[in-house]
């Protein structure tokens, strides 16, 4: 199994002195579905953004696809980013544009300044956008403006926009935090499906431990900018949850115990 992503001694200290990440080390294999969990302010968003360099790490190395990308700038950075799709808690769509226009934005990384600015997309790209939207169940909404969509539909547009990049890695920053449970399940199923059928590696920040355990191949627990757990969901114990979430873990532990019980029942 080949390694797609490797973080070596990555640290991030913000200008105001906040240490968001300190000495983070882990690696992710190609095709893996990895979930990052941790309390609010633990540094999950920072961690994800240090990978596509939306945030510049203060220390350490990031190896992506066997290349050390720590020093990437300008054109090489843009080219790298086309290989890494990202979806967001707030969907980050241009609300006034139509669904298909938003999806095509995912191709801008491949465009020259002129054709990108003018939004000149090829027929192939439009076809691809159409197929992705069809796959995600948004065929009816293609020409609708995004401000008329529900949260779950917006997030699916976000996924299509990331997929049209032909990414090797998908970074998902709490993609279901603003969604109702049933839309959340739809989104998680789509992401899992993408990972299984398209062999795209997924790194996803989640607030819900039970969902992380249900979907992920591996869980990384972050607390106060440090990785305190890194292993399979089955290895995650109540004790680990306590180390990750600290004192306010009590209500989360109910989840994990239920989860264990369900697993036992299944057996």
């Amino acid at each position: 199994m080949t390694t797609l992503l490797e973080m070596k001694h990555v640290s991030k200290k913000y200008g105001n002195g906040t240490v968001a990440l300190s000495d983070v080390n882990f690696s992710v294999n190609e095709g893996e579905f990895v979930s990052v969990i941790g309390p609010s302010g633990a540094g999950k968003s920072t961690l994800l953004r240090c990978i596509n360099k939306m945030i510049q790490a203060t220390d350490g190395e990031v190896i992506f696809d066997s290349v050390n990308i720590s020093g990437f700038k300008g054109r090489s950075l843009r080219k790298l980013r086309t290989k890494i799709g990202m979806i967001f808690q707030n969907y980050n769509l241009v609300e006034r544009l139509s669904v298909i226009e938003n999806v095509l934005h995912g191709r801008l990384g491949y465009k020259s300044m002129l054709s990108g600015s003018l939004g000149l997309f090829t027929n192939d790209e439009k076809q691809q956008a159409y197929h992705l939207l069809e796959m995600l169940g948004l065929k009816e909404q293609i020409y609708q403006r995004c401000d008329q969509l529900s949260g779950g539909q917006k997030q699916r547009v976000g996924i299509a926009r990331a997929l049209i990049q032909n990414p090797k890695l998908m970074l998902c920053d709490e993609p279901i935090a603003s969604l109702d449970p049933s839309s959340a399940k739809t989104i998680m199923d789509h992401l899992k499906n993408i990972s299984d059928s398209l062999k795209i590696t997924v790194l996803i920040n989640l607030h819900q431990v039970d969902i992380a355990m249900n979907y992920a191949d591996r869980i990384i627990g972050v607390s106060k900018g440090q990785i305190v757990f890194n292993g399979a969901p089955s290895q995650l114990t109540s004790g680990d949850i306590k180390t990750i979430y600290g004192s306010d873990a009590s209500n989360l532990m109910i989840n994990i115990e239920n989860h264990d019980r369900v697993k036992v029942a299944e057996k």
């Binding site: 980013r81 086309t82 890494i84 967001f88 801008l108 990384g109």
Partner: peptide
């Protein structure tokens, strides 16, 4: 932020 993370340049963004 979304367009930047997709690799879009400044002017197209």
């Amino acid at each position: 932020e979304a367009l930047k993370s997709a690799g879009a340049g400044y002017v197209p963004t």
